[in-house]
Nucleic acid binder design. Structure first.
Lengths: 210, 210
DNA sequence: GCGATAAGTAACCACCGAGTTACTTGCGGG
DNA sequence: CCCGCAAGTAACTCGGTGGTTACTTATCGC
């Protein structure tokens, strides 16, 4: 009799609603901080369905990570920078990294949580490990082309550079709140974000000069 | 009758033992993941003492953060780089940041946890906020001197640079385990750590070239 | 040496939250 | 059109955990 919003049966829809709700909850409160009751409520689903589709809270967290990684790897794959000017392409790539954090605020918390748990969900996920790392390949070929044209220095390890590109943006977003409290300066404002975006591009391109 | 190792009474010792145990536990399992029973056991103290000295689990976590921040700010204060060659001093400073993470593996997890909790413990701690940020002042004067001598570019914001210096090291340590799993390359090995240390100095000094 | 204070102990509890049980009901294939 | 299966529901359970109660006893100023 109760006119629940979830009347018709739909495996994929319910699964996705739980996944979306879990993403929000895990990002906001962490793996132990999140509540399965709250995830179910937010998804408009019955708690039992979490166990039906994902076996356990950890299974659900793993599925959230799998979707998260699939999303960013997909976006990275869609970047078509291979044919462009190396300097131009590299600054697009650094800006892409930065913007991904802006547009996906849940991303950092989920990664931090997974690292706190010693990467056990990622390690036991064949799905995550099957995703290749297109950005590293892109960086690698940009470095080669840029060095050949005399636009970049020649001694750069693409994996190290990848970590640095991610790092200069990541730390800013990850630690904004504590840094704001300590500096007494609101780093979450749009102006600060714009300033930071310019800075991270400057740092990477400045470093890459021959 | 029980010959407990904690026989004689000693306010400061017990307090410190709890704090040390809590630092380990919170860093390993997060704020909600850590167990007060386990902290007490590890400290060789009675659980009641946590509440005696720190009022609550959150109070204990705040005290851990206060000690953590006091430690790093103290070490930063002890750096005496003001009179040295700017390039030399800057690379020491970048290396200091890197080495701090090596020597204090608990540091990153605690910061991540605090950021997940929206910096609420830091914000309500007058003690943390009373610590000034000596590194930013050091960076500021190095930038001025380096620009004057023609060793550094002239347009660098010291706060942005501080965040970048921290960031290139932080992300590596923070995400080592997930990155290792995804790259299929063990980033926690001593060789990789040495390589990374050289790289982060290169990135910052490369960027700072005029 | 005595008594107030505070360090320390053990046993306890109320609640909360992950996971289950036992059930109902919509739906697609024959 | 009906039946087997899977989607969905409500009401549990039970172990763990932060915090407390009620107590003992070492220590130190006088």
């Amino acid at each position: 009799m109760t006119a629940s919003p979830q009347r018709t049966r739909n495996r994929e829809r319910t699964r996705q609603q739980i996944l979306d709700a879990a993403t929000v909850e895990f990002a906001a409160k962490g793996l132990e901080g999140a509540r399965t009751d709250e995830i179910a409520r937010r998804a408009g689903a019955n708690k039992r369905m979490i166990y039906h589709y994902f076996t356990s809270k950890d299974g659900l967290f793993q599925a959230v990570l799998e979707e998260t990684y699939a999303n960013i790897r997909g976006a990275e794959n869609a970047l078509r920078l291979a044919s462009r000017d190396p300097v131009e392409a590299m600054s697009q790539l650094v800006a892409f990294s930065f913007d991904w954090f802006v547009d996906h605020p849940e991303f950092i918390s989920l990664l931090n949580e997974e690292n706190l748990h010693r990467a056990e969900h990622v390690r036991s996920s064949t799905q995550v490990q099957a995703l290749n790392m297109p950005l590293v390949d892109t960086i690698s070929s940009l470095l080669t082309r840029g060095a050949a044209s005399g636009q970049f220095r020649a001694d750069v390890d693409p994996v190290e550079l990848y970590i640095s590109i991610a790092g200069v943006s990541y730390f800013y977003f990850s630690n904004r709140l504590t840094l704001s409290a300590i500096f007494g300066r609101d780093l979450t404002s749009p102006e600060e974000t714009t300033r930071r975006r310019e800075h991270v591009v400057d740092v990477i391109l400045g470093y890459l000069r021959p």
